[in-house]
Amino acid sequence: MTLLAIPFPMIDPVLLSLGPIQIHWYAIAYIVGILLAWFYTKRLAARQQLWPGNESPLSAAALDDFVFWATIGIILGGRLGYVLFYNLDAYLQHPMQILALWTGGMSFHGGFLGVTLAMILFARAKSISLLSMFDLVAMAAPIGLFFGRIANFINSELWGLPTSLPWGVVFPNGGPEPRHPSQLYEAALEGLLLFIILRVLSHWTGALKKPGTVAGLFAILYAIFRSLVELVRVPDSQLGYFSLGTTMGMWLSAPMILAGLAMIIHAQLKRSDG
């Protein structure tokens, strides 16, 4: 073991125990992420000058209604995505474990699909511009990603390959070797950096006036950042590596790049036609 290894900060995954009730950091991360994203989208929606025709696509009241739809999409989509994409055989043998959300096991790609479906249904029900709604939610998504990855780190899960780099972390369930803190890499790239890029794009270039541009870029950059971290992240043991050293995360991210490109091209063509 290298002398430069960083010991894992022993943070109890359970924040608070009240008799049989346990409050986990994992749950707190989701709650904080959703609440901050809700606050941020309301601030963005109030900036009328950012949107097409200087008119926000959603009112504050509509966003208050949508946060419930989004929460359901995140939780159901994230859990079902993990069950279907990552560990279907195990959950078929123990189906009640599907409900044990506090043990971890959420898929971003499943949550992404769940929220996308929620946005489609909500936009149709409320006669809202779907592409602008995609843009608005994409602006806030890095907030939830940041807190989710921090929770992964606290849970000592989804760690990386062994490394000799000075910031390698010795995880309590990862053996004696220092490992890439891949959860923190993702928090930095998918959370902080992606948030900054989208903020600059929307506020300095007027990208929100071309509906679909911001959401398309979010999809592309998330897929790229996720795939890069997958190079140093240990894949789920029940799946391992696929052909050419690829992982499930890479395969699920690839369609996001295509969808993102399609949205950006559509946004630019629509703009030029108008």
Score class of each variant (00 low, 15 high):
residue 3 L to P: 06
residue 5 A to V: 02
residue 7 P to F: 14
residue 10 M to Y: 09
residue 13 P to R: 05
residue 13 P to C: 13
residue 15 L to M: 12
residue 16 L to I: 11
residue 36 L to K: 05
residue 38 W to G: 11
residue 38 W to P: 08
residue 41 T to K: 00
residue 45 A to Q: 09
residue 47 R to C: 07
residue 50 L to C: 08
residue 51 W to Q: 11
residue 51 W to F: 05
residue 52 P to H: 12
residue 52 P to T: 03
residue 55 E to W: 04
residue 56 S to W: 04
residue 66 F to M: 15
residue 67 V to T: 12
residue 70 A to F: 11
residue 71 T to Y: 04
residue 72 I to N: 06
residue 76 L to T: 13
residue 105 G to M: 07
residue 105 G to L: 07
residue 110 G to T: 07
residue 118 A to G: 01
residue 127 S to W: 09
residue 128 I to A: 08
residue 134 F to M: 12
residue 138 A to F: 01
residue 143 I to Y: 00
residue 148 G to E: 13
residue 153 F to Q: 09
residue 156 S to H: 07
residue 162 P to N: 06
residue 166 P to I: 06
residue 171 F to I: 13
residue 175 G to A: 15
residue 176 P to N: 11
residue 178 P to N: 13
residue 178 P to V: 05
residue 185 Y to D: 10
residue 185 Y to R: 09
residue 186 E to F: 07
residue 193 L to W: 04
residue 195 F to T: 08
residue 195 F to G: 03
residue 199 R to F: 08
residue 202 S to F: 00
residue 204 W to H: 15
residue 207 A to L: 12
residue 208 L to D: 12
residue 209 K to H: 06
residue 217 L to P: 02
residue 218 F to V: 05
residue 228 L to G: 10
residue 229 V to A: 06
residue 234 V to F: 07
residue 238 Q to R: 14
residue 240 G to H: 12
residue 244 L to G: 04
residue 246 T to D: 03
residue 252 L to K: 02
residue 261 L to H: 02
residue 267 A to H: 14
residue 271 R to V: 02
residue 273 D to W: 11
residue 274 G to Y: 13
